[in-house]
Design a protein around this nucleic acid. Sequence first.
DNA 1: GTCTATACTTCGATAGAC
DNA 2: GTCTATCGAAGTATAGAC
Lengths: 227, 227
Amino acid sequence: MPRPATVSPEQILDAAALEFSERGYAGARVDRIARRAGVNKAMLYYHFGSKQSLYRALLRWIFSRAADRLLPIAAAAVPADEKIARVISAIAAFTAEHAFFPAIMLREVADGGVHLDPDTLQALARVPMVVGGVVRQGVADGTLRRVHPMTAYFSMLAPIVFFLAGEPIRKQLAARRLANMASLTPEVFVDELQQTVRLALAPSAPRASAAGRRHAHNRSSLRRKRL
Amino acid sequence: MPRPATVSPEQILDAAALEFSERGYAGARVDRIARRAGVNKAMLYYHFGSKQSLYRALLRWIFSRAADRLLPIAAAAVPADEKIARVISAIAAFTAEHAFFPAIMLREVADGGVHLDPDTLQALARVPMVVGGVVRQGVADGTLRRVHPMTAYFSMLAPIVFFLAGEPIRKQLAARRLANMASLTPEVFVDELQQTVRLALAPSAPRASAAGRRHAHNRSSLRRKRL
DNA sequence: GTCTATACTTCGATAGAC
DNA sequence: GTCTATCGAAGTATAGAC
């Protein structure tokens, strides 16, 4: 019983990605998704049941793909700081292919996960899990300084996602001459962010040849309770 | 002709802040805002004219207050890296007083500014302006390494906003046992982020006594075209 | 300034023919 | 599997009495 190779479901997901990323869950219109997908609204309901199911299917799909993209980076035989640079590049590359990804992520955080069922939540959690694992390993083998893995996660992921999602508003600011960040292209930003994060997470002692020192001690005393 | 000192407009703004931050512009319901404010829906329209005007008034109000909070930090007579640590603290403190702020910010970035008129856009632009000024000054006097001011802006603001806005979803993740970040309280996070950003933006040469060195040169050669 | 009642529109979802 | 037509709920906004 081969899969009914008509043309709809993937096209619907693509259209839904655009619509949901541009307008959010509440602002998205089922009619518009159907029209953008070139299918009938009833067709959409036939395949996905409801607006909510469609949204969840989209989130599972996009976050699973994102996490899958990061897995080989986490598994590579390179130091943690190099993995982190690659994660940043990978998010940027992933966004170049799926431009709607950053806005979806911002919106889901802002929505507090109210539309998510357990399966979707789990798919969504894989991204911080993978990145956190990279950091934890780097901290353990002394390649990175001691930080909470989730601090490192937010320090690298939030800027790149925020920046990429912010392109439309930067254009508005430029059009109104309220700011001009045209020189800050995604390429430049990725490059600077990689260096920024590398410096931020480097062990505090000068610069060993990436070999294992046990702990990186902080200069500033009264921090660090536990991770 | 004294201002009609009835009780409504501020209460409406407060209620609107909650509703818009929780649901976004499209998801917010005028009826709910009115009910939360304890006023009639017609009263709301009497004071603000439309859902859109109310939303814009809210954004102008909250972003102006945020920028006003940062101004004295930018003007203080302390090194740029200390100002940056204070900016991070200030955003966290501001959010403690106005819990809806981070979600509003995320949503507005994701929405690409589609609901904004020029005045509101200008109010919104003041926050990156002030922070960018701090960084530019720090780069100029050698207190910070050479980065694009907006790279620094995103590196400090995106993580704190993202983290603070993400509290609801972290609770969901914890409830489903998909992650437990309970040890990462806002206090710990702010502390770690301050140190992270300080390291990320410190001049690359060892550590002068905060006095003026002209330029901080990067180790890595082929970066840095212009800022 | 404040409230009730309601006009007008849009949206998610389905019925039912093919 | 696909389409047209439409229902019923919910939403923004206003009219008009007080």
